[in-house]
Amino acid sequence: MEVIKITGTDDTPNVILDAEKGIIEFSGRSLPEDVLSFYGPVLQWIEEYIQSPNQKTEINIKLDYFNTASSKVILDILIYFETIAKQDKEVIVHWFYQEEDEDMEEAGEEYAEIVDVKFEMHVY
């Protein structure tokens, strides 16, 4: 599968989708004007990836801000990986938050409660 790298802007995140390495990464800010058109191709790539996923997939989420529409998309992404985690594939979500950003820390904890995937929390 093609490696997708999207460079972030002031309202869209940096995205890396690398099937060979089993790495999915989002960093920066996410408040796109049109959340569906920005994340549409990302979701399409993930749908294809989970058809034949790596033995191990690491999802790095290092966002310093995301709006509520993006929070829904992040959940949708994580739910895709929940399905492969149930098929004995290893999936780890690395959730990064800044030292005093309690809201971001809490957001990670909430996703970990909703989705049945292994989470590791990291302060950066």
Binding site: D34, V35, T68, A69, K72, L75, E110
Partner: peptide, 26 residues
């Protein structure tokens, strides 16, 4: 509020305008 947010996030879907019904709760 936390429970309502989680419920809406799980059960809601994005509208064509990209709304998730989460803004006010948030």
């Amino acid at each position: 509020l936390k429970e309502l947010f989680k419920k809406q996030m799980r059960e809601g879907s994005l509208t064509e305008k990209g709304g998730a019904g989460l803004g006010l709760i948030d």
